[in-house]
Design a protein around this nucleic acid. Structure first.
Lengths: 342, 342
DNA sequence: ACGGTTTACTTAAACGCTTAACCTTATGAC
DNA sequence: GTCATAAGGTTAAGCGTTTAAGTAAACCGT
């Protein structure tokens, strides 16, 4: 299919290419109503479609947003199997497309090389999910474009973060267990890193215990990787060797599902013997058996919000993004994996 | 961050921009070893990053691949919550990135308007998942780029399809149930459309029954949408009103999970009272309770294969893609949802 | 009637890269 | 020594836009 250029539109309309450009970009103050009309008709009839590469070259804006998600260490594949990221992307994409932007979705090799991508592609902005090594963020700061971070506690004037109150989330989860009469509550979690989301949830766990006058027992935190598999291991361990534990708070829904399976493997049941609460409310949470009680963060809305923030930052080129993070609401959704004790 | 242009590299290296371009694009026949060396050092020291927009404009190739997945009717959001698509994308992305390509992920408004995107962005190729209205494919044919289709039985010289043998898959699933002694087997499925993947699986279902000398009972096919929710409805129905049915083949894993829940809701158990087999082997299949027996199509590999096909088609600009589809292998993975009868 | 604005366009340079065409100089065949 | 060829470079046009600067006509206040 042959490309129709602005030149051909201009000839058909009997005006200069500049006039066409003005009309097409809505600089209506520069042109008469008559010309607008002629140009629009010509463009319509020729089925003119602008070339974004040329546009990008001329005015240094590509209408392209970089979206980065973590990947597996080994096979360098996106962690998109994690519905948390999938759902975020659903939200992001729908907002971007509505505004005429497109998304370049990619992973990034151990934090290196993304600078290349952003420069090559002239990205207008980026949304970064997950946590990377420092040098990655340093690179990001160098290129002058708005950036929003998801799942990060890096507060820097270069970045805007769209987050949740993880500490509160952890607190809500554990408090729910406490309200249901549980006093020996295990924590099953990924690696607790300083200033990571997981640490905040952990802090919430401790605060809930403390406020309820319960003893924090380090032996009751099972910390490893954020996977179904580790949840399974932890679940088995808990069911087999910790008869005192009656409830577990898993810091992700997948882990919670793993815990449930591990518990069952040891001949115990959820929630009869052990109650379980997860975190995130991914779409599969409601499909688990039994349906999982969890802390819902409306993931899709969060993605949409991130996109909105980014877009508005791109629009108000001049002003910086508000440096305070945007905090999205949480809600406890009680399904069938928590039993009321006594 | 200021952009370093080819001009600056050429000045630093003391050669013309043309020479730099030749070196950087590997046209080594045109330049001496000495120049190559000088240019490479200059580029390195200046940390030169080419501008793909300019490149795209000059040689009409963007190194950008369009990836399209279906979206929900109502909210116009990607169906990325369906792990089937997520996993495909994992595979696609990893291959593309390795070859220096990037992916523009988007949905498409009821089949319209994607032509615009492809023209605007000068896409080098596209991977289309799902099924759309005819006009969409007509548009696609007009733009002259390689296209690979996933999950489609449209055989046209313009497209290459990377598929599986859905009929065989359906056959394998049902045959597995029959081998386990089941004779009253329900089918729970999305809408059966002529030449859709679902129809093929349905055909496989019928063939397996026939070959085993079993009667095909239309009352045993439960056809509606490909969702967990419908699986749930169907499961309840089956458990409550079809005591003769001992096994169900669901044409997607999500539906299978829904069936299991529905069955349980009616006080029956999987696999004790009713056996269930799914299709796809999404990552959550192994996390269900009990772990789901299903027909595995290595989804990630399929995504990778699709990307490979596309890339090689882009490379051999001239030659057309082989018009026979690429068929990926299937495997039955027996987990815990099918009971041996008697 | 005159300078000064305003309005509605057009011209042409610029964005960063590729590449066909051209220009030297060296190499070799006879 | 002459001519063809090859090797290694350079020049400059072109890709499709945008936009600053220029132009020409119309309008206006005095």
């Amino acid at each position: 299919m042959k490309r129709i250029t602005i030149r051909e539109v201009s000839e058909k309309a009997g005006v200069s290419t500049a006039a066409v450009s003005y009309v097409l970009n809505g600089r209506h103050s520069k042109v008469s109503a008559d010309t607008i009309e002629k140009v629009q008709r010509a463009a319509q009839e020729l089925n003119y479609i602008p070339d974004f590469s040329a546009r990008s070259l001329a005015n240094n804006s590509s209408k392209l947003i970089g979206v980065v998600i973590p990947q597996t260490e080994d096979r360098k594949q996106l962690l998109l199997q994690n519905p948390f990221y999938s759902e975020l992307i659903c939200g992001i994409e729908s907002q971007l497309r509505q505004s005429g932007y497109h998304m370049i979705l990619s992973g990034v090799e151990k934090g290196e090389g993304y600078l290349d991508t952003t420069m090559q592609r002239n990205l207008d902005g980026a949304i970064i999910m997950g946590v990377y090594q420092e040098s990655f963020y340093d690179d990001l700061k160098k290129v002058n474009m708005p950036i929003v971070l998801i799942d990060s506690y890096i507060y820097d004037r270069h970045f805007h973060v769209v987050g949740i109150d993880d500490e509160l989330g952890g607190y809500m989860a554990v408090n729910h267990l406490i309200e249901n009469g549980h006093t020996n509550i295990a924590l099953v979690t990924g690696t607790i890193r300083k200033d990571g989301v997981v640490e905040k949830r952990f802090l919430g766990y401790k605060r809930a215990l403390k406020e309820a006058g319960l003893f924090y027992n380090p032996d009751h935190v099972f910390e490893h990787s954020v996977t179904y598999e580790y949840g399974y291991e932890a679940g088995k361990l808990i069911a087999a060797e910790h008869p005192e534990i009656t409830a577990v708070f898993a810091t992700s829904d997948q882990m919670a599902m793993g815990v449930m399976r591990g518990v069952r493997e040891e001949g115990k049941d959820v929630p009869e013997h052990i109650s379980v609460i997860g975190f995130d409310d991914i779409s599969f949470a409601r499909m688990s058996t039994p349906p999982l009680t969890t802390v819902d963060q409306d993931i899709i809305s969060r993605g949409m919000k991130a996109a909105d923030c980014l877009l508005s930052a791109i629009q108000n080129k001049g002003k910086e993004l508000p440096s305070e993070p945007t905090i999205m609401p949480l809600a406890l959704v009680a399904r069938d994996t928590v039993r009321k004790l006594q």
